[in-house]
Amino acid sequence: MKKELICIACPIGCHLEIYPDEDYRVEGNQCKRGLYYGKKELTNPTRIITSTVAIEGGIYRRIPVVTKGEVPKDLIFDAMKIINKVRVISPIKRGDVIVKNILDTGVDVVASRSM
């Protein structure tokens, strides 16, 4: 049985063919990240989350944040509920931890700019 996916590891977007019966063998990838993505997308799909949190004292009212690693796809909306409750106070530096270990995924949410 063959599964077809478009790799989202980078903007090239390789058309992958994955064979789950053969230990998730991947064809059509142009780099190693495609091998990893192909298997992972069919076994445990994950995504980076990017959003903003409220900031006081900054030049704008929101500061952008990013998960410092991928989190399971089915936790995205639960993670958003937590992110949307956070308020921070300026100054914040790029990379500062905004939410530690979100939903026990082992992944921190960090500021993606200084403000």
Partner: peptide, 10 residues
């Protein structure tokens, strides 16, 4: 490496 827009700019 994969960055967000603000990180890239900064």
């Amino acid at each position: 490496e994969e960055l967000t827009g603000p990180e890239y700019a900064e």
